[in-house]
């Protein structure tokens, strides 16, 4: 209980910290944000009115608190690249779903493929196989997601014609076609990370297999496979959980690039175009969203720890 409270406090502190950083980062931008929002044609009165309306004349802490208050309600103001006609929240809403699907699909792929593969690769151990597994893993880890995306487009889209590049379908128009298309970008995001998790899980399993308690289990007359599943796996998965949480954060990064390759209307592309158009309200919102997701995931990982590890549970 004490542990949960401690972790919760740490969650709130981290979130606050993140919001301050996100807010503060954009305060150092040179130039007049009213001017950049309204354009150079705006009159002095319009600018002044805008500043008054946005609270730009107030002190920094007050502006932060206002921004945070609105942000908590999901209100990030209007997007300047759409000439202040569209709310940031509306802009993000649609695209969030695309990116979320991409992330979830890749994560499922990673977990579904890497955990069995990791266990399998740890079962047999000899010099040549070891080197080969390490090498194959290393090769896949070295491929950048966006290059992999391009190669997938080339092989499966252009040569094999399993899908038409750029033929993205909205999930609410046709969900099956959406999924059929999304599986390719998801694979591009997932494959390098599958290799990472396999490597990590494998070394964790091999390390745990060497420990005293595994030897004790063997001395009881258990077979190696039984020792692995009954004793070692759970212990070996503890660090893997943290690693998977890190991977989840990393997926977001991969998604930004892969969306670009597959022309997906997701948060990543919105982010890149907002940066190019100096649309700071949108950039701030996206950064705050993704950072919060990462932090909240880490909080849940801490809770999972408590659930599986009695040493955490009972101090």
């Amino acid at each position: 209980m004490k542990y949960t409270v401690k972790k919760f406090i740490s969650l709130v502190v981290s979130l606050l910290f993140t919001s301050i950083l996100t807010f503060a980062a954009f305060q150092v931008i040179p130039g007049d944000s009213a001017l950049s929002a309204l354009g150079i044609d705006a009159t002095e009165e319009q600018l002044e009115e805008y500043r008054e309306e946005m609270g730009l004349n107030k002190s920094l802490p007050v502006r932060y608190l206002n921004w945070l208050k609105n942000a908590l309600r999901g209100d990030f103001g209007y997007s300047s690249q759409y000439r202040m006609q569209i709310k940031v929240s509306a802009l993000i809403g649609d695209r969030l779903i695309v990116t979320a699907w991409l992330a979830v699909l890749s994560f499922l792929l990673i977990v579904a493929v890497s955990i069995p593969l990791g266990i399998l690769s740890a079962l047999k151990k000899n010099y040549i196989l070891d080197s080969l597994i390490t090498l194959v893993n290393q090769v896949f880890m070295s491929v950048p997601s966006f290059f992999l995306g391009m190669m997938i487009t080339l092989v499966f889209g252009i040569i094999l014609k399993w899908f038409t590049p750029g033929s993205y379908v909205n999930p609410w128009e046709n969900f099956r076609l959406f999924l059929r298309f999304m599986i390719f970008p998801a694979a591009a995001v997932a494959i390098p990370r599958i290799a990472m998790v396999v490597k990590f899980l494998r070394s964790s399993l091999l390390r745990e297999m060497e420990l005293d308690y595994a030897r004790t289990a063997k001395s009881k007359g258990m077979s190696n496979i039984r020792v692995l599943f009954r004793h070692v796996l759970k212990n070996a998965l503890i660090p893997v959980i943290t690693f998977l949480a890190m991977i989840l954060a990393d997926i977001l990064a991969g998604a930004i690039l892969v969306e670009q390759v597959f022309n997906l209307p997701g948060l990543g592309r919105l982010l890149v175009s907002s940066i190019a158009n100096r649309d700071y309200a949108v950039v701030q919102a996206i950064i705050l969203y993704s950072a919060s997701v990462v932090i909240i995931i880490n909080f849940f990982v801490d809770l999972i720890y408590q659930w599986i590890d009695p040493r955490v549970r009972t101090g």
Binding site: L21, A249, D250, L252, Y280, V283, I287, A291, I295
Partner: peptide, 18 residues
Amino acid sequence: DVLTSFPSILLALVFVSV
């Protein structure tokens, strides 16, 4: 902790946008 939990490219994007 806060910084490393971010994907580095995301942070770089913030930096570049600023």
